[in-house]
Design a protein around this nucleic acid. Structure first.
Lengths: 252, 252
DNA sequence: CAGTGGTCTAGACCACGCT
DNA sequence: GCGTGGTCTAGACCACTGG
């Protein structure tokens, strides 16, 4: 019924081979696979690309292809305050994301870099400032068991960040949250979720092959006066992250 | 700083060319582009693939590449009942999705096919039935302005669907919702969102190039007795869909 | 150093859309 | 029938990895 390409057929065969491998086990090299399947190397690469994309296999330049070791990490970007549901009072010293990861039995870590940059068009639109205006950014790379899982960059207008802990480098863990401590508790968020392929920058920060699809999550936070006080841009490769949420029933 | 590949460099150049094109305008063929940029056709294809992935351009087999005409369609999978926020009493004759699309000024349409199938492992896990057990599926293909936007397949256990409107073919528009009418109003949902590349099946149903990344949204619906009464699997290409939600503030 | 994946070339044949 | 994209081949050179 479905006329499969040679690459798709080989991808299926490789999938079985990978299943017989121990986690972390290595596949033969592209040239070997090309010989045994009697196709050109390009065809093998197309097949392997499919396995990389769905996370079956990890490609390491200069080393080879390996069976995936780590499972998908669940990410709950929505924080309800309903039914006593989940967090919102995360364990001391952990932000919501880190608390979630720890609850899944993994070990979270975040590298943080603070700097002052000119607002890109995306950020300017989110913060309602002029493009090129100076804003403060806290760039985070999040690791789970020392494996890069996602990047989360928070942008603040100067008038919010000035003279607060926001400008302090390092992985801050402030009870009640950074924004509340800075005097701008957030009243609501608007979230936008799009998808794309990993950019060169994503690839460099998270050590990804550029064929990986990623989620891009943009959250605009508003304070009680409906002023935009923060934009968070999270980039999460789909082969490492699963987004979860729960909602009350409706007519749908 | 960033050592770009030839394909990436050409992709950038093409991006400018596309911007000068009217929406729907056609690019030169791959062989022409290869000549003018003095590279092999494969390199041009790699560059074009980048533009297709981020939705700048639409590839039509046998015809050519065209500048994208239609904007991203917003999709709000979450239905709050707060602040008088949005829908949940959708316009008569429209489900929540169609009402959203119409509110954006577009024209929604859905093709529905009803059938009885054996539960796949994914569906069996979601409905808490045995794999291979017979379930009812309502397969929908959703169009916006006659452009395929997403597929949404709803699976029901037999004991839920038997003898109800669920088994009636066609695009049903039942005030209060199909589930309520069938005697199984849903108390809550658990949602899971993953990403992957379009499968052969996705490509066929929505006329996609297989290099398109897609969102896969799996929603499990529970009734008041916490029984699983429905699983909806939605596949939404990231180059046509943007997922939106809004949430109350927290400590995060 | 030899082996790996990453990229590119210059062809080729195919199925499909159009006229 | 001709042009289009989709796929595949059999090479090549590169940068990077590891021992």
């Amino acid at each position: 019924m479905a006329p499969k390409s040679a690459a798709a057929r080989i991808a299926g065969a490789l999938r079985s081979n990978v299943a017989d491998l121990p986690p972390g086990g290595r596949l033969p090299g592209e040239r070997d696979l090309a010989d045994t399947h009697e196709v050109a190397r390009g065809t093998i690469r197309a097949a392997l690309a499919m396995l990389v994309q769905d996370g079956t296999v990890i490609g390491r330049p200069g080393r080879g292809y390996y069976r995936r070791e780590h499972p998908l990490v669940d990410w709950w970007p929505l924080t309800f305050e309903r039914d006593g549901y989940r967090r919102d009072t995360p364990e001391a010293g952990l932000d919501a994301w880190a608390a979630d990861v720890k609850a899944q039995g993994f070990n979270p870590r975040q590298d943080v870099k603070v700097s002052i940059v000119e607002a890109s068009p995306l950020i300017a639109a989110g913060l309602d400032v002029d493009p090129g205006e100076l804003v403060v950014v806290r760039e985070r790379i999040r690791y789970v068991d020392d494996w890069p899982i996602q990047t989360a960059d928070s942008y603040y207008p100067m008038w919010v960040a000035q003279g607060t802990d926001i400008m302090r480098p390092g992985d801050l863990t402030i009870p009640g949250g950074l924004m509340r401590a800075a005097g701008h508790p957030q009243a609501r968020f608007v979230d936008e979720l799009t998808g794309r392929m990993a950019s060169d920058e994503d690839a460099a920060r998270m050590d990804l092959p550029r064929i990986t699809p990623v989620f891009m999550h943009v959250r605009v936070g508003y304070d009680a006066n409906d002023r935009r006080v923060r934009v968070i841009v999270t980039v999460a490769p789909t082969d490492r992250n699963r987004i979860m949420f729960e909602s009350p029933g409706g007519a749908a």
